[in-house]
C-alpha cells in the first residue's frame, strides 16, 4: 500500500477535525474533534513507522527500526487521556457557572 494513501486519509480526518473545531459551538464536540485530530496523527505515525520498517524488512525481518513512532503513539494516548480528564472537569465547571456549554459565552477575559 503506498504511503500516500495513508497520508491522504489522515489529512482528510485531520481536516474534518479542524472544520469541526471551527464550525461547532458546543464545547464538548469541539473537544471531541480535537480527539479526532489526535487520532489522525496517531494513524499517520504508525503508517510511517511501518514504512521505515518495511524498507529493511526484506534484509532483516526482525529489525526494530521504526519502533519509536509506535512508542510515540503510546505517549500521545497517555497525554490525551490526561488532557481529557482535566478538560472535561473544566467544561463541567463552566456548565455549573453559566448553565451552557456554548463556547461563545466564554468571552469574559475580553474586558
Amino acid at each position: 500500500m503506498p504511503i500516500l494513501n495513508y497520508i491522504y486519509l489522515c489529512l482528510t480526518l485531520f481536516s474534518i477535525g479542524v472544520i469541526g473545531v471551527l464550525v461547532r459551538r458546543n464545547a464538548i464536540i469541539v473537544f471531541m474533534c480535537i480527539e479526532l485530530m489526535l487520532n489522525a496523527v496517531n494513524l499517520l505515525l504508525v503508517a510511517f513507522s511501518k514504512m521505515y520498517n518495511g524498507a529493511t524488512f526484506a534484509n532483516a525481518p526482525t529489525s526494530t527500526i521504526g519502533i519509536d513512532a509506535q512508542i510515540f503513539v503510546f505517549f500521545i494516548m497517555v497525554v490525551a487521556a490526561a488532557e481529557v480528564s482535566v478538560g472535561l472537569a473544566i467544561i463541567v465547571m463552566m456548565y455549573r457557572n453559566t448553565h451552557s456549554v456554548d463556547i461563545n459565552f466564554l468571552n469574559r477575559l475580553k474586558n
Binding site: 504511503i3 511501518k50 520498517n53 524498507a55
Partner: peptide, 8 residues
Amino acid sequence: KTVLLKEG
C-alpha cells in the same frame, strides 16, 4: 514508498 501491511 510503500507501507508494510500484515507483516513485521
